[in-house]
Write a protein that binds this DNA or RNA. Structure first.
Lengths: 161, 161
DNA sequence: CCGCTATGTTTCACGCCTGAAATATCGCTC
DNA sequence: GAGCGATATTTCAGGCGTGAAACATAGCGG
């Protein structure tokens, strides 16, 4: 037993090279879909994925969100959200008002125009995703969904401490 | 049988909402890992993922690649590669020389310093990925790998025409 | 009430990335 | 060998995204 370069944290055997290949494949699938979605958003709606993401987050909260809550929900920086919200505000898609009871924060809400715009883009987006991922059978999708769920949890565990 | 809003391209039944959830989960897993990798690359090596990607592509081709070939391999724009290569050249990690026989193109190669640097970063990167994805069992990883392979093919089919 | 820490927001410099325009060269055809 | 479509590269404006610095306000404990 001299010098086995062992790294056996989770797996019984060495994780080895296959983990890297798995990661590259995961990244590749995501990247291809994301690029296509970006391209279509730009082409057919003259908008971008970040803007759509903001609208999608707001659509789930008709009562509005603070900028901080928004940045936490989207996993992006505060400064980033500031710019996006300002832009969407200028386009009349969101309204930014002071938050009653806390003079530091602002409340961002979808306007009616924003909600309508989002409904249209969202419907198209949904179709695109159905087309892009619909090539797998329902069973395959379900299995993939569960495996990704397990992966998500295991990553979170790895990152938590 | 009046108005079923049917969309039955691949699946026997409607793809429905689960496709979107699958996509969001896929995106989430990828994003979390990618962010963590970026963070560690910056923190521990003062470098970035795009720079690393270029070096990784070049490492597989000791004979060098043209900028165009590089941009095709990395799926990024030509202009993007121009900047990255220039930067890496200034840092002494790659060498850029004229391509014999074609005065339009340049050949980019790893320097010795670049190869050494890449070896170190690459080893760390490999470990990170093993840690982050190693929480799944070997069987789970294998299954996930295969499902993503199927997905990749099915997306390509959807996009090809 | 006073400080002090935590939180919300903005600004800024910097890096990535794209798509389009501008050049330069190739290589093929007539 | 002149023309011309294809390919290689660069430049540039513009959008995204970050982390750090600078403020303003909250809210708590003494």
């Amino acid at each position: 037993m001299s010098g086995a370069p062992l790294r056996e944290k989770h797996d019984g055997a060495l994780a080895g090279r296959d983990t890297l290949r798995l990661w590259l494949r995961l990244l590749s699938c995501t990247t291809v879909v994301e690029k296509e979605v970006k391209r279509r958003l730009s082409q057919r709606f003259g908008t971008t994925l970040p803007r759509f993401d903001v609208l999608a987050a707001l659509d789930r909260r008709p009562e509005g969100m603070t900028l901080s809550a928004l940045s936490r929900a989207l996993l992006v920086s505060n400064g980033n959200v500031t710019g996006l919200a300002k832009q969407l505000g200028e386009d009349g898609l969101v309204a930014i008002e002071p938050l009653p009871g806390d003079r530091r924060a602002s409340l961002v809400r979808l306007t009616e125009a924003g909600a309508e715009h989002f409904a249209q883009v969202s419907a198209a987006h949904h179709e695109w995703i159905d087309d892009l991922l619909g090539g797998l059978s329902r069973a395959q999708r379900s299995l993939l969904f569960d495996l990704l769920g397990a992966l998500k949890v295991s990553i979170a565990v790895e990152l938590e401490p």
